[in-house]
Design a protein around this nucleic acid. Structure first.
Length: 421
DNA sequence: TCTGGGGTCCTAGGACCC
DNA sequence: TCTGGGGTCCTAGGACCC
């Protein structure tokens, strides 16, 4: 059996944070609003009981629930981020394997705790509450997807005391039997419709469906989901959060904008914010994208959406330098033009200085392959992971070596660029 | 009048390269 | 010797998550 995984989720996180420093809010319905106070993005249990839904426009909720004593807060992400970090620090005491999944959720690997999982989880829960004031729920299962199910059960079932363990098939059957497709992590309306059209209408039916057929009609994501529901892990814990692949700064205007000048100012200020975030994360980029669209809630009015990618030439030049420097570390010579790949034929020739990309084919049995792979590993250690990527091409008889250049969609570390200047 | 913001992954198709 | 076909990249769209 796979090692147990716990999903720890903070209950009504933003609302709990607001309540933390104002205990007089206990027992009252609280809602937290998005930027511009546009939408409801968090609710206390009391607010949920009033029927207020996630994403509800506040101006409608306000009218509908006038006089019901709802407490309203604008969101305060600095506060939430700080409290989140405290919760995660406490969690790290309960397992060496911690994946911070979102601001209010974390997966924990619990290998080695078999036999005392429930006690461990209850202690975790009590400790987080005592040290941070934030209530959490804990779901434990052999896979992430089932841990999500367990967590949901822990939240919904008052008798659980906030902890649910789903290690046996019987327990999993019972929990899954109470859910709908869209309760599963990774299934929303569209996918549920497609599955239903295939004759799969419940989580249990999905688990017991033929993965190959489901994949053919949907995608590899659902195939993985089936295995996860059966207790075979397809999604690993990611203990080190990888670099961001994109960074955004977007805002609704809250009212129609008609002046070009006003739009320009907004673009400039959003760009500056995105760049700040990027630098804070130690990243750089080769391109940026500006987009804008009209109010999609007014289909009666003419609609427009525009996107403009911008290539940054400075970063591109640095890319060339990075590639060149990396290439110089390889003991290879460029051979221009085209070569056939034939079984057993070795093309040990590669690289034109300054070229952004090239290919190399080596027969797997050729001892030079090993040397080459070792030198690539060394380069990647020196210049950063991903500087050069390689792998076995599908159906090919040799290795394919690809010099990683910065594609428009990816960012890279400043340090990598600086290292080769 | 007022309807969030920030992300990820997958697929398909076409252009392009050698 | 070798001009078909393996492979990559880009774009757009779709779907999902918190």
């Amino acid at each position: 059996m796979a090692r147990p995984i716990a999903l720890v989720d903070c209950n009504n996180f933003y609302a709990s944070c607001e309540r933390l420093f104002q205990p007089q809010l206990r027992g009252l319905p609280i809602v937290v609003l998005s930027n511009n106070d546009g939408c409801v993005i968090a609710r206390s249990n009391e607010a949920k009981a009033l029927g207020i839904v996630m994403g509800d426009p506040w101006h409608l909720v306000k009218d509908r629930h006038a006089g019901s004593g709802i407490v309203v807060r604008s969101s305060n992400y600095t506060l939430y981020g700080d409290l989140s970090a405290r919760v995660m620090r406490v969690l790290s005491d309960f397992s060496p394997e911690l994946e911070v999944y979102s601001i209010d959720e974390a997966f924990l690997g619990l290998g080695g705790f078999e036999g005392r999982l429930e006690a461990h989880a209850r202690q975790l829960r009590a400790t987080v509450l005592q040290w941070t004031g934030i209530p959490v729920s804990v779901g434990i299962a052999p896979t992430k997807t089932l841990a999500k199910v367990a967590n949901r059960t822990a939240k919904k079932d008052p008798a659980s005391g906030g902890v649910c363990v789903l290690l046996t098939r019987a327990a999993q059957d019972e929990a899954l039997g109470r859910l709908e497709l869209t309760d599963l992590w990774g299934v929303a309306g569209r996918m549920a419709e497609r599955l239903t059209a295939l004759g799969i209408a419940t989580p249990l039916q999905l688990r017991d469906a033929d993965p190959t057929i489901v994949r053919r009609h949907t995608s590899v994501v659902m195939e993985r989901m089936i295995h996860e529901l059966r207790g075979t892990p397809c999604l690993d814990l990611e203990r080190h959060s990888p670099d961001r692949k994109s960074i955004m700064a977007t805002r609704s205007f809250g009212r129609p904008v008609a002046l070009r000048r006003e739009m320009e100012e907004a673009v400039a200020s959003h760009t500056a914010r995105a760049a700040e975030k990027m630098r804070r994360q130690g990243l750089a980029t080769a391109s940026l994208i500006v987009f804008a669209h009209t109010n999609r809630y007014r289909p009666d009015q003419p609609q427009y959406g525009g996107t403009r990618p911008v290539q940054l030439t400075v970063a591109t030049a640095d890319t060339g330098r990075l590639t060149r420097a990396a290439m110089f570390g390889l003991d290879c010579i460029w051979r221009d033009g085209f070569s056939y790949k034939k079984a057993g034929v070795v093309f040990p020739t590669l690289i034109k200085a300054g070229a952004v990309q090239g290919s190399l084919f080596l027969h797997p049995d050729d001892p030079r392959s090993k040397t080459l792979m070792a030198s690539i590993d060394a380069l990647n250690r020196r210049y950063g992971r991903g500087t050069i990527a390689y792998g076995t091409a599908t159906g090919a008889k040799g290795w394919t070596l690809r010099a990683e250049h910065l594609s428009a969609r990816y960012t890279t570390r400043w340090g990598d660029l600086l290292a080769v200047r």
